[in-house]
């Protein structure tokens, strides 16, 4: 019972935090509206016109396919990057030789601007969704790599010894000992990689013209349609905010329950509405 109430009050607490976020975003909207009032629709369309344009695009059936396409490109690249970066990172964390071998390559990859990758990807894959996915993989994999490497490298030797003393089987060793520790390093890396993958996907689509939100943006640019361009931006931003607050942040909080008191701060406030 207590447990359920604790969970419920924490969920309420989390949802209530949305009001603070809304206040911040609404103030930004006010600034946007002021910019519109000062510079006119051609430079900066009003927030309400932009939302109306977004709704209209949704009604025309242009919004959803583009969002699905971009999401597919971004997620496909992200999953591949997580696998490649995670596995290589874990190897680099576990073996000194692998770290010597892979770390400089990861550093190099991180240093190459994403836009350079887009150009190369277009030359290699042409104007298809594959170019976007590829760019996402090569730009986000090094981030995941670093997180995974650090997570494995910092594993507590005492815990490993304890697990060995209890004759813990391999899968359980990974699941109960290695993963929870690694996640505290890996999750922030995965979160930033996921957010980045959307932005990269849109950029690659914009240059390749192979559909998706980026393509929509490119079309709006050609037509000098600021309202539509801004509406597409709003769509990306909405996706990112939804991703952050509906997926990443709740997961982050769930993973961190075991640190909840140590973090101090808000815990006394989470006891909830009775």
């Amino acid at each position: 019972m207590n447990w359920v109430r604790d969970r419920a009050s924490r969920a309420l607490d989390y949802l209530w935090g949305g009001w603070g976020a809304a206040a911040s975003l609404l103030l930004l909207t006010a600034l946007w509206e002021a910019g519109h009032a000062a510079y006119g629709t051609l430079v900066l369309p009003s927030p309400r016109d932009t939302v109306a344009a977004l709704v209209r695009m949704g009604g025309d059936g242009r919004l959803l396919p583009a969002v699905v396409e971009t999401t597919g490109n971004a997620l496909g690249g992200f999953v591949a990057a997580s696998l490649v970066g995670g596995v290589l990172g874990a190897m680099a964390g576990a073996s000194d030789m692998m770290r010597r071998l892979l770390q400089p390559i990861a550093t190099l990859m991180l240093g190459i601007p994403a836009i350079a990758w887009v150009v190369l990807a277009l030359l290699w894959f042409g104007g298809s969704g594959l170019a976007a996915s590829f760019t996402v993989v090569v730009t986000t994999a090094p981030i995941v790599f670093s997180g995974a490497a650090q997570g494995v490298r910092t594993l507590d030797g005492d815990l490993r010894r304890m697990a060995r003393a209890f004759r813990v089987p391999g899968p359980m060793l990974v699941w109960d000992v290695y993963l929870p520790h690694m996640l505290s390093y890996l999750f922030p890396a995965l979160a930033s990689a996921l957010a980045l993958s959307w932005k990269i996907a849109v950029m690659a689509e914009l240059l390749s013209g192979a559909g998706g939100i980026g393509d929509g943006l490119a079309t709006a640019r050609v037509q000098l349609d600021t309202v539509k361009a801004l509406a597409w931006v709003l769509a990306v931003v909405g996706l990112l905010l939804a991703l952050e607050y509906l997926l990443l942040e709740p997961v982050r909080r769930h993973l961190q329950t075991w640190r909840r008191e140590a973090q101090g701060g808000d815990s006394a406030m989470t006891r909830g509405l009775l």
Binding site: D13, W16, W19, A23, S24, L26, A30, R48, R271
Partner: peptide
């Protein structure tokens, strides 16, 4: 003005956010 409108909405949300101060047991 619409700018004032958005600020009013932001202020409304900030007040609701603050109401959480009272969400203490009992």
């Amino acid at each position: 003005h619409a700018v004032t409108g958005w600020i009013a909405l932001a202020a409304a949300c900030a007040q609701v956010d603050r109401m959480r101060e009272c969400h203490l047991a009992g």
